[in-house]
Amino acid sequence: MRVLVTGGTGFLGSHSVARILAAGHEVRLLVRAPTRVVPALGPLGVDPAAVDVARGDVTDAAAVALAMRGCDAVLHAASVYSFDTREHTRMRAVNVRGTEVVLDAARDAGADPIVYVSSFAALLPSAEDPITTDSPVGAPRETYMATKAAAELVARRRQDAGEPVVITYPLATLGPHDPHLGDQTSRIRNALRGLMPMWPSGGFPIGDVRDVAGLHAAVLRPGQGPRRYFAPGSYVSTRELVQTLRRVTGRALPAIHLPARAMLPVGALTGLTQRIVPAHIPAEYGAIYTCLVGRAVDTSATAALLGPHHHPLETTMLDTVRWLHRAGHITDRLAGSAATQEQPERRHG
């Protein structure tokens, strides 16, 4: 089938495009900047000639409808993922309005399936532990998470109407080849650079980008109706995350762990300051809040679809650090022992 992919030059999107092509499908990309296609897909071994490129924005209904012509299915992965307060206006437009536009165009074109890439954060905060795909949509006190919750409601209304919408929930995602050095990858880089000596208590579920891509390729089956799947992964405390970084780099990485609730006012102040400071400040309210309300997720439905195997945390973290080093984002010293390990990036499942 021919699949329209939005967000295909991003972290999740580019890896998903590679897996979708490997599964034998054709891909058309809807992109704002065609010059980003080669840098995003080339490192993944994708020949740019293998994809059809349509220029447009997900908030432009005419451009989306034109890109949909001749496509059988959709993977809507376009999203502004950031806890940076300077991005609030753009994420409201892209994350909510963009989802409405793309899902409407896909429905009108008779696409099946229509895959919407949500986030586990759309279901936070939650009284359930673990969270399931049937858990209610959350009402989070943070803008990015709130926009994903609003977009989740859009997608669930389509499911309730019987449309073949498949919702996937990536976890906090790491792994190699992040075209734009996104929020999670930057957080690991900042930790290695010593910019994050204080960590909030709590934790959140973490997954590998290659497992998310595998899920997106696997759900591209028509005639299955509405479905929901968490991406593979597991809950990780911030202490375990730092300890894993220490193991893969061989570095001490001193860290102080403070109660997440006590750190929230610092994050809120940082958010206000960030609006007038051009340089990015690592202490973000959204990241602290996620650690406070983070929960484990029930991935049993995903395991039934893909099998129980996925990249373990240590493999994901090692491959993330090794890629940061190879791409020139961190020095030999910051990468530690990960810089000298020559084994290929490992894949499970």
Rank of each mutant, 00 (worst) to 15 (best):
L245T: 04
V242L: 10
A65D: 15
R275T: 10
Q343F: 09
A262T: 11
G10A: 10
V154N: 05
L153D: 11
T168Q: 06
T85G: 02
L324R: 00
A61E: 15
D72G: 15
G42N: 10
G267F: 03
S337N: 12
P164L: 02
E100P: 03
H177Q: 12
G182F: 08
Q159E: 12
F230R: 08
L241Y: 12
R69I: 03
G267V: 04
R275E: 15
M263A: 14
P136F: 06
S118K: 02
H348A: 10
R107F: 05
L153Q: 15
H177I: 15
L44C: 10
A339R: 10
R228W: 06
P136N: 09
D178T: 08
D134L: 12
N190C: 04
A78S: 14
H310A: 13
I288S: 00
I281M: 13
A111T: 04
R90D: 13
E345C: 02
A268D: 11
G56H: 11
L220E: 01
D108L: 14
S82L: 09
R19C: 00
T249Q: 07
N95L: 09
R261E: 09
G10W: 01
G110N: 08
T35Q: 15
R227V: 03
R187S: 13
V38Q: 12
H177D: 07
E100R: 15
A62M: 05
F83W: 12
T273W: 10
V117N: 09
P265I: 10
L253Q: 08
E26D: 14
G336M: 07
L75H: 04
E128F: 06
D160V: 07
E342A: 12
T331N: 12
A151M: 06
I276Q: 01
P232D: 08
T143C: 08
V209F: 05
M145A: 15
S201I: 01
V209A: 13
G194R: 07
V102T: 15
D298S: 06
G162I: 08
T244Y: 06
L123W: 00
L174D: 00
A283R: 01
G207I: 06
E342F: 00
P265Y: 12
A304Y: 02
H280S: 14
P226A: 10
L192H: 05
E345W: 14
G175T: 09
P39E: 09
R189W: 02
L21D: 02
H25Q: 09
V266Q: 04
P278G: 12
D298N: 14
R90S: 11
H257A: 06
P140E: 03
G98R: 04
D104Q: 14
Y235Q: 03
V64M: 04
C71S: 14
G162Q: 13
A283V: 15
T173K: 05
A335N: 04
A146I: 01
A33G: 02
A122W: 05
Q243Y: 00
A268K: 14
V64A: 05
P176T: 04
S118C: 11
R261I: 06
P232A: 08
P130D: 07
P254G: 09
F120T: 09
D52Y: 00
V321D: 04
G110W: 13
I256N: 02
D160Y: 08
I281Q: 13
V3N: 00
M317E: 02
T290G: 07
R251K: 13
P164M: 07
M1C: 03
I114R: 14
